[in-house]
Amino acid sequence: MSSTRLVCMTTLALIAFAANSLLCRAALADGSIDAASFTSIRLLAGAAVLWLIVRIRAGSAAGQGNWLSALALFAYAAGFSFAYLELSTATGALLLFGAVQSTMIGYGLYRGERLRVPQLGGLLLAIGGLVGLLLPGISAPPPLASALMLGAGMAWGIYSLRGKGTGDPLQVTAGNFLRAVPIALILSVAMLGDLSLQHSAGIAYAIASGALASGLGYAVWYSALPALKATTAASMQLSVPVIAALGGVVLLAEPLSLRLLLASLAILGGIALVILTGKQASPTSR
Rank of each mutant, 00 (worst) to 15 (best):
T173Q: 15
A48T: 11
L265A: 15
L261H: 01
L94N: 01
T232K: 07
S160Y: 12
L23R: 05
A70T: 10
T10M: 06
L23C: 01
R286A: 15
A93C: 10
N66F: 10
A233Q: 12
L73K: 01
V189T: 11
I207V: 15
P226R: 05
L212C: 13
A201E: 12
A234F: 06
G175S: 10
G202F: 06
R5W: 13
L268N: 04
T173E: 10
L212P: 04
I158T: 13
L6C: 04
Y218F: 15
Y76V: 06
L216K: 02
A62N: 12
L95H: 07
S81C: 15
G59H: 03
Q280C: 08
G270W: 02
G112F: 11
L225G: 05
W51Y: 11
G151C: 03
L133V: 09
L94K: 00
A147L: 15
N20R: 12
G122C: 05
N20H: 09
G157W: 10
A213Q: 03
L133R: 05
A281E: 08
A190H: 01
L260K: 03
A230E: 02
A29S: 14
T277P: 01
V54Q: 06
L130N: 00
A45Q: 05
S81Q: 14
L238E: 10
P226S: 05
L246A: 14
M1C: 04
G98C: 11
N20V: 04
R259E: 01
G167T: 04
